[in-house]
Nucleic acid binder design. Structure first.
Length: 462
RNA sequence: GGCAGGGUGGCCAAGUGGUAAGGCAGAGGUCUGCAAAAUCUCCAUCGCGAGUUCGAUUCUCGCCCCUGCCUCCA
């Protein structure tokens, strides 16, 4: 089955046919680097990371571009607050962003362009827009995009200009020809970072950054453009207006939008203040738990964030790690992916990246492997293990050592526990079950759970 | 007001024109000194109403409810 993608531009699933056979150009809107990222950001990064992995697995040579917005109002304000140069701030936040992404197991994109190093591309695009009559210099000195000059405006978001205006919450700006016109180039105010341009010192508007950077690195027409649902309008709509009007081309062919992370059925966002930063969550939960939590729901659906939801994700992951641990006990220490999946998993992934369905197949395989172990059968049959590990690898979960997963790394505690297990084994051998149970109970109070088996006793944190 | 996306078992969440994956929780069995883990079995008629159809949770229409976008936002 070929890859089907839900294309926001058409509002339906379509077969994915790349522009150039065997190659995929994919652009994903990254973050504005002025603060730590929250779980909402984690979702985009993880969801597109899995898409990236699957496209590569499917044999495509993927050029994956994800930008950094490293100049904007919030960055300037935050830098001023901290009394540092914006570049100090953005460099710091990019480093922190990378820490989060590495922790979450997200592969680095092919390229992570920064807005501030792409001024010529943006200026060229703005010049072209002015030349084509799509942009104008306003009385205030800003360069604005004339929304009504672009015929297809609103196609992506399914809106039309008149509807937008009637419900518009935009402040009326006298220098705009139309209230929906947006800034391409912002005239510099005193003390703000600025770049030289044909319209004087200033800085780019947010939307032009992504149009210019995506075209610069992927060409005017490319395959996939992704990002959060909230960027659909106006950001992506504006990107299309800019790129198409300046080049008469098609721009991105497939638009993919992921759903939000909610808290109590309400969108997690900076402005509502109901957000959890990634690092905050990682203090309590292993990064794979967050990954499991996110992949347990289809990428386009809303996802409700809570501790109990993370607990459920962890319980599922525990189940997979129990299997990995059993395998380790019979001498299979490493799960080596060999890029063989099974048909149902492949079908799920090809169906618009249906990771919950794919995960269901992982659990089915998990059960199958355990059944074979219970029956004393060969787990290598039918490439069972290879499929299992490939699937886990593609989702980038169950990557750490199984004992480490359950036991942690405090070596003093580990040896203390292991001494008690030896003592208990002696007690059990002499049928002193009272003593054996006392040891088990004492450990249980500390949250340590013992598990006996024919081959000995193991333990984990409960 | 306009537009978009939803309402599936106790919770989460897939899916399909012919009577519903998977996970968590729960009940019972096997295993175990007893547990735990694993495994087996059990546990839903898919928001409401109408229509199309031999047959709808899945298509159409109406209604109710929820969320998002329309300002910066992943």
């Amino acid at each position: 089955m070929s890859l089907q993608l839900y294309n926001s531009l058409e509002g339906k699933k379509q077969e994915f046919i790349p522009l150039e056979e065997g190659k995929v150009g994919m652009y994903v809107c990254g973050v504005t680097v002025y603060d730590y990222c929250h779980v909402g950001h984690a979702r985009v990064m993880i969801v597109f990371d899995v898409m990236y992995r699957w496209l590569k697995q499917s044999g495509y040579d993927v050029n994956y571009i994800r930008n950094f917005t490293d100049v904007d109002d919030k960055i300037i304000a935050r830098a001023a607050e901290r009394n540092i140069d914006i570049q100090v701030l953005t460099n710091e936040m990019i480093a922190e962003f990378h820490k989060d992404m590495d922790a979450l197991g997200c592969l680095r994109p092919s390229l992570e362009p920064r807005a501030t190093t792409h001024m010529p591309a943006m200026i060229t695009m703005i010049e072209s827009l002015i030349k084509h009559g799509n942009a104008y210099v306003s009385d205030s000195g800003d360069v604005l995009y004339a929304v009504r000059s672009f015929e297809g405006y609103g196609k992506l978001s399914g809106k039309n200009i008149d509807d937008l205006e009637s419900g518009s919450r935009v402040d009326v700006d006298e220098s705009k020809r139309d209230t929906l016109d947006f800034v391409l180039w912002k005239k510099a105010k005193a003390g703000e970072p600025s770049w030289d341009s044909p319209w004087g010192e200033g800085r780019p508007g947010w939307h032009i950054e992504c149009s210019a950077m995506s075209c610069e690195h992927l060409g005017h027409t490319f395959d996939i453009h992704g990002g959060g649902m909230d960027l659909k309008f106006p950001h992506h709509e504006n990107e299309i207006a800019q790129a198409c009007a300046s080049n008469d081309g098609q721009f991105a062919r497939y638009w993919l939008h992921n759903g939000f992370v909610n808290i109590n059925a309400e969108k997690m966002s900076k402005s509502l203040g109901n957000f959890f930063s990634i690092r905050e969550v990682l203090k309590k939960y292993h990064p794979e738990v967050l990954r499991m939590f996110i992949l347990g729901t289809h990428y386009r659906s809303p996802l409700d964030f809570s501790d109990s939801a993370l607990d459920v994700a962890k319980a599922g992951l525990d189940r997979l790690y129990e299997t990995k641990r059993r395998l380790k006990k019979i001498g299979i220490n490493e799960l080596i992916p060999a890029f063989i999946t099974n048909d149902v998993f492949e079908k799920a992934m090809n169906d618009d990246f249906n990771t919950p369905e794919a995960l269901a197949k992982v659990f089915s395989l998990n059960k199958e492997i355990n059944k074979r172990m219970d029956a004393g059968l060969d787990v290598f049959d039918d490439d069972l293990l290879i499929k299992f590990s490939t699937m886990l690898g593609l989702l980038a979960i169950v990557k750490v050592d199984a004992d480490g997963w359950f036991q942690g790394v405090d070596s003093d505690l580990v040896s203390a526990i292991e001494n008690l297990i030896v003592e208990r084994a002696v007690a059990k051998k002499s049928r002193d079950f009272a003593r054996a149970d006392a040891i088990r109970d004492a450990l249980a109070v500390q949250g340590i759970v013992l598990e006996d088996s024919a081959t000995g006793t193991t333990w984990k944190r409960g």
